[in-house]
Simulated scan of single mutants.
Amino acid sequence: MMTRNERYQNDHIVHSWEELCEEVYHESWKPHLSRYRSDYAFRGLSDASYELKNSFLRNCDMRPELEYHLLRNFRKYSISKDAQLSASFWRSLVMAQHHGLPTRLLDWTYSPFIAMHFATANTEKFDLDGVIWKVDFVKVNKLVSEPLNHLLCEEKCNAFTVEMLEESIVSLNDFDKKLDKNQLIFFEPPSLDERIVNQYAFFSVMTQSTSIMDDWLVNHPELYRRIIIPKELKWEVRDKLDQANITERVLFPGLDGLARWLKRHYKPVNNGTEDDL
């Protein structure tokens, strides 16, 4: 069986907080702008062995026909105040993902520090190395076929929006049929609520609901990088993110996020005493 190091060509193990901060901003300097502007989307995972597998595939396995029924019934039973946001299938898809329905979308963020949060938020995984995926979404989107390829040039932007996608693609079946097989795009969701805004949210989507993004990326090694956060470094990264207010209290506004933050913040390290808190 192929090991992780053999499968992923671009793994970089960091050994300090300083190295991690440098690595997430690698290649962000744009000489023509004289500014730092990263072209990368970030996704943090608590276990470096996790695949970039969407929630639909994890839930429904190789049963693509179930995707239509999930989304159809989600739209059917949505309460009336959400009717406007469910006006198109793209908006329904975003809302469904946002509320936990299994979909083919994957969550990403423009913020490397929010990706660090998700790589270190689960203290039950602190015995495992975490990972931050960096994918050059600008180059990825330029590879998409028609009828979407020309839209980015027309709009003079690097990422698709729901409004742009609605112009050309009217259903998931349409998305799969109109584009070439095994296509990947990144798009920005509408600002449904504070959580999407605060998480600087970004989504990827592939043609075919059962596609695994890892399989696509290993064939395009120039487009991604994996930053491995060793388990020994996780507590330091976690504590420094908390000090910077990158916490559940901010990323999940409301009492649920507050409770999740407090639960983790007051978890003793190595069964410490109250003096350790």
Rank of each mutant, 00 (worst) to 15 (best):
G130F: 00
D180P: 01
E154P: 04
I132R: 00
N158L: 11
F160M: 08
V197C: 04
L184A: 03
P102W: 01
S211F: 02
F187M: 02
L184Y: 07
Q208R: 09
T207R: 04
D180E: 14
R91D: 14
P189N: 06
E188K: 14
C153T: 15
V162Q: 11
N141P: 00
D180S: 11
M95W: 06
E146W: 07
H99W: 07
K139C: 03
T123Q: 15
S88H: 03
S145W: 06
R91F: 12
A96H: 06
E188L: 11
I196D: 02
M116T: 06
S111A: 04
D176N: 13
Q97N: 06
L148T: 12
M116K: 05
Y200K: 15
C153P: 06
E124Q: 13
C157A: 09
L106E: 12
V144P: 05
L165K: 04
E124L: 13
R195Q: 08
C157N: 12
V94K: 12
H150A: 13
V140L: 00
N182D: 13
I196K: 02
K139Y: 00
L151I: 13
R91I: 09
R91T: 12
L151A: 13
V131I: 15
R104M: 07
N198I: 00
T109D: 10
E155T: 10
K178P: 01
L101S: 09
E155D: 14
T207Y: 00
Q199P: 00
Q183L: 06
I169D: 09
E154F: 10
V140M: 01
L101V: 15
E124V: 11
E155L: 09
F118G: 10
S168G: 03
Q97Y: 00
H98S: 11
L165C: 06
F160K: 06
N182A: 09
L128H: 13
Q97I: 07
I169R: 04
A115Q: 02
A119F: 01
P112R: 06
P189I: 03
L143A: 05
L148S: 12
P112A: 12
V170G: 08
Q183Y: 06
H117D: 10
M95C: 10
S145N: 11
K139V: 05
N141W: 02
E167F: 05
E163F: 05
E163I: 10
E146T: 05
A159Y: 07
F89E: 14
L128A: 13
C157T: 15
F175A: 01
M95D: 09
S204Y: 01
T207A: 05
P190I: 08
L179W: 10
T161I: 01
E188P: 04
L93S: 06
D107H: 02
F137H: 13
I114A: 08
N198R: 03
K177S: 14
L152G: 08
D129Q: 07
C153D: 15
T103H: 01
V94Q: 10
F126H: 15
S191N: 12
K156L: 12
R91G: 14
S168D: 08
Q199Y: 00
L143Q: 12
N122M: 07
G130L: 00
S88F: 03
T210M: 05
D129T: 07
T161F: 00
L148Q: 13
M164L: 11
N173I: 13
L165D: 09
L101A: 12
